[in-house]
Design a protein around this nucleic acid. Structure first.
Lengths: 119, 119
DNA sequence: ACAATATTTCTATATTTATGGAAATATAGA
DNA sequence: TCTATATTTCCATAAATATAGAAATATTGT
């Protein structure tokens, strides 16, 4: 990831309504939610919501797919993970004692290991 | 963490210069860097740099400490970690197959376990 | 007290972003 | 084709943010 892309992603969630939208979608899972459902849940006027959904989409932090009349929006987990890694890269001069070690979650196997420990 | 605080933190790094500054400090470790050293490394005019350092400080993402004539800025790792957790909380409807499981890094012991696996 | 260094504040200007009502577009069912 | 539903685009206005030169402030050594 490079600076400009990261700024795009960060800008897209650096706003109260958009952060709420994004977190809702992160929690909703890959199926996502229709625009109307998002607006209803978060009580956001539709034109405003549409403006923000577009911002998140253009940045690349959420995906949209049309299902008949509905448009389902979902979190782009890859983009999110890339951003988190970018932010914490080479943390603490390589000692990495002070930040979550995201690289331990970077591959599927490592994620599995991490979860096994937890359970 | 709550929405408004997270937006504050995100806004503070949702800008090219400030993201560079923050990442430089994340990598520098807890000792931090003097303002002048940051400006020199990143080629940012001092008044602009000062404006951005203030933004990051007010948001709470970096700390400042004065050492004689120098002011050392350092990353606030707690704030950063809190933000990362907030973003990924309850990811994927609790299945957490799609995002780094930061909660496995949430405590020191868990971080240790995670690292042991990796090595 | 003076000079040198480190950093911030002041200032004006330029740019970007957010808001929500009203109208437009798109899809689907009767 | 008519109607209802879902979502977006248009628009004007309001507000927040970024830039960097010049001047001001703070600290230290002589």
């Amino acid at each position: 990831m490079e600076n400009k892309l990261a700024v795009q992603l960060l800008s897209s969630i650096a706003q109260e309504a958009r952060l709420d939208i994004f977190r809702l979608l992160v929690q909703a899972g890959s199926e996502g939610l229709a625009a109307g459902a998002i607006g209803e849940t978060l009580k956001i006027p539709l034109s405003t919501l549409s403006f923000h959904l577009k911002g998140l989409s253009v940045a690349g932090l959420i995906n949209a797919r049309q299902v008949s009349r509905f448009i389902y929006y979902s979190a782009n987990y890859e983009a999110m993970n890339g951003l988190l890694v970018y932010l914490t890269e080479n943390c603490c001069a390589g000692q990495q004692a002070c930040c979550p070690d995201l690289s331990c979650n970077a591959t599927d196997n490592e994620i599995k290991s991490c979860k096994e420990i937890k359970s």
